[in-house]
Design a protein around this nucleic acid. Structure first.
Lengths: 249, 249
DNA sequence: CGACCAATTGAGATGGATCAAGAGCAGTGG
DNA sequence: CCACTGCTCTTGATCCATCTCAATTGGTCG
């Protein structure tokens, strides 16, 4: 934060400083209770590390311990590695999400940025050391972990028992819910992930994803613009094709 | 607990009574801290309901709210229903496991007993009302939820990117870890679930499961006796075929 | 022993993968 | 502004792992 400019004058990079404080505060605002004593807050702050990841870069972290990651901004994918050229996107995480990056078990995991992303990382164990007595914080973690578990269960169902078209429709509806904006004549999506990421998330190939998008386009359920913009025109029809129960009724 | 016998004499069914107390105590011993104040323990006890499910029966519960289930004994499967004849086993849970049976979202869920099982159920929300201030209890829930999430992520990888043989080997290794016993010349498994359950868990069909078992038998990696007994003879070879990273190294 | 359901085995069908072009989009540099 | 480059995405043709359907065998329990 302190550096020497061309003229040899020591300057304080207030922008970097502010941005660092900013990152922690975003996290604190969302995850830490207002009533947290100042010393505990400081301890957590000391433990936390800000990382800005360029698109395509992955979080460096010792795979011996689990890491808590708060996504301050951007979009990320949590990837499980089966082998060299087989990857499974376990979950997408967007601004405001808190996730646990697991230690290396039978497979290794990594968190990769889809677009430039601002992350706050904390080692899981030491964090719990500090905050393990605070029911409000544990409640917060529990709630977010339960949501992740629920999403993971839904994904399990999709990968285990759904056809390609059902997976794609479920995916679009889920994304609409999480990062969609009401647009002209439907829900507008700006997908931060590539076709490959979608394929790796749904257990399919890029070619299949592309073909299913084409089908949906031909049937007038969606339109696409460029690589990332998707407009969902007929949510009801997408719902029907997603294999959700509501649609069967 | 009080009933009339053949002779018309009123008797107290002390066995049922004891067994009921027993069920709660098993749960309390594992999940509730010893230091929990007596009034809180009583409130939790009042909220808890014991259920004994015969094999094949499923837990009845209002699908409007999430339910916390502690498996005191037996073996169960958590099933997500895609449609009438498409089911996905999201997880198996054995004695000592604590799980959250989710409220009905895009798909409905149910917990079904594989063998006669003894369960303790608690409505999730009221339970948190009572114990939400107790960091030790929340920590316990968080830890168990995190384990479930991690298992679910591993399953996601298996369903998304692994072949039939890899899924079956991973499954056998996971079961060995959870309910295996050291036996003559290998790890002995007494699988409480049918081939159909395994198929529904791995996103395959019974026929495929059967064929993979046959291959493993032919290659001398396992032997089977009857419908449920499996003896894992070559853990190293199973590991190799499971697509785990350790095996690649 | 016999009935019934679970598991196995075989033969054929198929959804999605794989392989192979081609088209569309950014970024770069003239 | 346009050509060039290296992508990602799309589309088509073929292949294959797994599903489906069907018949048989085997385990379990009355």
């Amino acid at each position: 934060m302190i550096c020497i400019n061309a003229a040899g004058v020591r300057i304080v990079d207030t922008f970097a400083m502010l941005s660092c404080i900013d990152t922690f505060d975003k996290f604190a605002l969302r995850v830490l209770p207002a009533s947290l004593p100042e010393d505990m807050r400081c301890a957590v702050r000391a433990l936390s590390r800000k990382t800005v990841l360029a698109a395509g870069k992955q979080l460096e972290c010792g795979q011996k311990n689990a890491t808590l990651v708060y996504v301050c901004g951007g979009a990320t994918k949590l990837v499980a590695h089966a082998s060299e050229h087989r990857e499974q996107v376990v979950a997408f995480h967007f601004a405001g999400d808190l996730l646990t990056l697991p230690a290396c078990g039978p497979h290794s995991y990594s968190l990769e940025a889809l677009v430039e992303s601002e992350l706050l990382t904390l080692e899981y164990e030491p964090f719990l050391e500090i905050t393990g007595e605070r029911a409000d914080i544990l409640g917060q973690l529990l709630e977010r972990t339960t949501i992740s578990l629920q999403r993971s269960r839904e994904k399990t169902l999709a990968l285990g028992r759904k056809s390609a078209i059902e997976r794609v429709c479920s995916f679009l509806l889920m994304m609409a819910e999480r990062i969609g904006k009401p647009g002209c004549g439907g829900v507008e999506l700006d997908l931060p992930m590539s076709r490959r990421d979608i394929a790796d998330s749904l257990g399919l190939t890029i070619e299949t994803i592309s073909r299913q998008f084409t089908h949906l386009r031909e049937q007038g359920l969606i339109t696409t613009r460029g690589r990332s913009a998707v407009l969902l025109l007929r949510m009801d029809e997408l719902e029907k094709r997603s294999g959700h129960l509501s649609a069967a009724a």
